[in-house]
Design a protein around this nucleic acid. Structure first.
Lengths: 306, 306
DNA sequence: GGGATCGCACAACCGATCGTTGTGCTCTAA
DNA sequence: TTAGAGCACAACGATCGGTTGTGCGATCCC
C-alpha cells in the first residue's frame, strides 16, 4: 500500500523507489504483485511515468485511509506521546457516556478506551503508566488510594429496578428502597472484592435488602431472560443503560426513590502524569459534569467526600 | 493483524491457528513478531489461553478498523458487486455536492468517486463497465451519445464572475452578460475538444464575449493570484465553489444575469448496468435534484432537452 | 501430591518471498 | 534516426515465514 501511494504521489516508479530507498525493479514487482492480488490493473504505464487507471483511482482513497489507520494503530501503543488511555468500568456505564461527550467536544484528542477488571488493577495500571485515567468508585473501605493517585468525583449514576411483567412491583410507577426489603434482587457476576461488591454490601447493610450476588454471569441476554420469566426476581440497572431485547419480553424499569441509590463515579489519575490531554479531560469534566451527592440520593459512606 | 484479531476472538493461540489453517507455532511467531515491531506486549500468556494486556486492549479497535478498511479497499476493485463508482467532472463541482447529499441520505451505499478526463473517456468507461455513472454536460455537438447510454438532466450550476479589487466591474452588485462584451475573461486550462471547451465556444458565439482559454493551468492558486492582481482580467467560477485564499486579496464574486450562464449537469449511465445502487442513485436524484432550464438562465442549445 | 493434559515457546529445517544486479524493450523527444 | 527515459523480465541470494519436533510451566483431577 505504501508503495502504491508513493507511486501515485511521485507519478512514476523511479521516484517512488527513491522515496522508499529501494530499486525501481522492486517497486515494479510490488505493484505487479498488488495488481495480481487484486486482479485489477492500477496504473497505465507510459513513457513518462505511471498514471492511475479508473480502478486505481477508486482504490487510492482506500489505500490512503489504510495507511492512516495503520499509523494510528501503531501510535496507540507507542510509549512516547500515545493517545490518552482511559479505563471505564463498563462499556455501557455513565463514564463511557462522559467519554463520548468529551470526544464530541474535543475530537482532536486521540483516545483509547479500555476496560480493566477492578480498581486494584486500574490503580496498578495508573502507577505503571499503562493507562492515564480511570473512572471508578474510589476508596473501597480498608484500601486507601496511594499517595500519588488523585481523584475527583465526577458523576452519580442512578440505579433503577428492572423486573419482569409478572413481578409484584411491575405496575409501580416508582418504589422506595424500603419497599424492596424482602424482595429478591439478583445481581449475577458480581465478583467479591471489587468495588461493585463493596457497593452492594453497603446497600444491603443499610436498607436490609436481599441481594443474591452469586452465580456466574452468562451475559446480559441471559440475565434479561431470567428476569423477564421469573416473577420473584428483580435486578438493578443503570438508568442510562440502553437495553436491546426481543419484543414481548415486557421488562419494566422502575425508578427507585427515598433515597435513589447512585453509583458514584470518580476520575482517578497519577499526579505525575504529564500527558497534555489529561489536563484537557480534567478541565472538560470539571466544566461539564453534572453534580453529585444530590439530595435524595444514596451512596456508600466510604466514598471520598467531594 | 488478522492473526492478532483471531487470537483475541478465539481466546487462545491454538484456536486462532485452527481458524487460519496454520500451526500454533506459526501464530506464536506472528504475534511475537507483531509485539517486537510494536515494542509492546499484547497478550499475557496463561495456562488456559491468551488474555489481552492493556496495550492489547488499546490496540484491538485499531486492528479491527484496519481489517475493515482493507476489506473495503479490496472490494473497491472487485469485479463482482463492488461499490458504486461515479465520475464527477471536478471535486468542487455541483455534481460532487450532489454525491455528498446522496451519501448523507444513503450512507449504506458504498461509493467510489473518480475524476476522468473528458466525456469521451467517461462514456468509454461507462460502456466497459469501469464506472457506473458520470456527471457530464452531454451531447457536445457532433458527438451523439451511443444508444446504450442513458442520460437525465439533474442540475444547472450557475456561473459567477470573479474579479480582482481593481477591475472596472469590481463594484457592481451584478452584471449582465451583455455588459461583459469586450472584457477579457480568462479561463486557463480549458482543453480543446472537452465539453468545457464546447460550452465556452457557444457562450462566446452567442454573446460576443472575449474568452481567453489558452495557457496551461498552473492551479487555482495561481489563477486567483493573477485575477486579483490584474485589473483587466476576470474569470468565471461556479457559485458553489468555496474559495480559500489569503486574506487581503480582495477578490469579488459578481452574479451574472440576463441571462445567467449555467453549466448543465446530466447523469449518464449504461442502460444495461445492473448495479442495484445505480437505481438508488437515480431515484434519489429524481426526488431531490433542483430543477433546470429555469427562466433567466442560459445553457448551450446542444444540451439534450428535457 | 503427582501424573495427565493443556497451551505456548524455542530450535532446526526448508521453501517461498522479496530484494538486488543486469539487461532488454518501448515510447518520446530532439 | 538516435539518445534517453522509464518500466519489465531474468537470475541470484538473503531473509522471512511456514513446518515438524520438542520442552517447559500451569492447571486439573483422581
Amino acid at each position: 500500500m505504501r508503495t502504491f501511494v508513493a507511486v501515485v504521489d511521485g507519478g512514476q516508479f523511479q521516484h517512488a523507489a527513491a522515496d522508499l530507498s529501494i530499486t525501481q525493479q522492486a517497486v515494479s514487482k510490488r505493484i505487479a504483485g498488488l495488481e495480481k492480488d487484486l486482479a485489477a490493473r492500477l496504473f497505465t504505464r507510459t513513457a513518462r511515468g505511471a498514471l492511475l487507471t479508473i480502478d486505481g483511482q477508486a482504490f487510492l482513497p482506500h489505500a490512503r485511509e489504510l495507511l492512516r489507520v495503520a499509523e494510528r494503530a501503531v501510535a496507540s501503543v507507542l510509549p512516547g506521546s500515545r493517545p490518552l488511555r482511559v479505563d471505564v468500568i463498563a462499556s455501557r456505564s455513565a463514564a463511557s457516556g462522559l467519554m463520548r461527550g468529551f470526544h464530541r467536544v474535543h475530537p482532536e484528542v486521540e483516545l483509547d478506551v479500555v476496560m480493566l477488571f477492578d480498581i486494584e488493577k486500574a490503580v496498578a495500571a495508573l502507577l505503571s503508566g499503562a493507562i492515564d485515567a480511570t473512572f471508578r468508585a474510589v476508596a473501597v473501605p480498608g484500601r486507601p488510594l496511594p499517595e500519588d493517585i488523585a481523584s475527583v468525583r465526577v458523576l452519580d449514576e442512578p440505579l433503577q429496578l428492572l423486573t419482569g411483567p409478572d413481578h409484584v412491583l411491575a405496575g409501580a410507577r416508582s418504589v422506595t428502597v424500603a419497599q424492596l426489603a424482602g424482595h429478591r434482587i439478583w445481581m449475577p457476576g458480581i465478583v467479591p472484592g471489587t468495588e461493585w461488591a463493596a457497593y452492594y454490601d453497603d446497600l444491603v447493610a443499610e436498607f436490609d435488602l436481599t441481594i443474591e450476588a452469586t452465580g456466574p454471569n452468562f451475559g446480559s441476554d441471559a440475565l434479561l431472560d431470567t428476569i423477564a420469566d421469573t416473577p420473584a426476581l428483580a435486578t438493578f440497572m443503570s438508568e442510562e443503560t440502553r437495553l436491546v431485547w426481543p419484543a414481548g419480553h415486557g421488562l419494566r424499569r422502575i425508578p427507585v426513590t427515598g433515597p435513589t441509590p447512585v453509583y458514584p463515579h470518580s476520575l482517578l489519575w497519577h499526579r505525575g502524569n504529564p500527558h497534555p490531554a489529561l489536563a484537557t479531560l480534567r478541565a472538560h469534566l470539571a466544566a461539564t459534569a453534572p453534580g453529585h451527592d444530590a439530595p435524595g440520593t444514596w451512596a456508600p459512606r466510604w466514598v471520598t467526600p467531594r
